[in-house]
Amino acid sequence: MDKLLTLLEKNARLKNSQLAAILDMTEAQVAAAIEQYEQAGVLRGYQALVDWDKTDRPYVCAQIELKVSPKRDLGFDEIAHTIMTFDEVESCYLMSGGFDLALTVSGKDFKDIALFVSQRLATLDSVIATSTHFVLKKYKEKGTLISDEEIDMREATLL
């Protein structure tokens, strides 16, 4: 059944009929399996991978490393829960290593993000230090190449 998930992870737009053909299942079985995964919280959503650089929308994103002081009994969860409710935060991970939380934050320009960091994040009680890294160019995201299409170099051989 893992194969259904890996297929959807790569391309969530495959129709149930196509998934059924690939997996040797009926369409009804595929639909039921997907519903089960959704209910169990295994399938958390379906999103398009958008290259905003190719559109008119002003879009900047940054990776922010946070050092925070964990709370007794709650550890990092409390601060993480506060941070993940901000709309600007696209992803939020607890990390091993030199810092604690890694965020991906987006806004319409650098100033947006600067304000968010200085006024919303840095002011939180548990936050000890922040380090902001702006993304200059995306090469690959979610396993998909962003910056360039890979050209098929194979010659049209007939063999």
């Binding site: 194979r154 049209a156 051989t157």
Partner: peptide, 26 residues
């Protein structure tokens, strides 16, 4: 000579051709 060589030469000169022709792994 392979009759399809000519055929693929045409394909090579066209834009936006989607080939399902090659016999080697991608």
């Amino acid at each position: 000579p392979s009759g399809i060589r000519r055929f693929f030469d045409i394909a090579a000169e066209m834009d936006h051709v989607i080939s399902l022709g090659v016999g080697e792994p991608n």
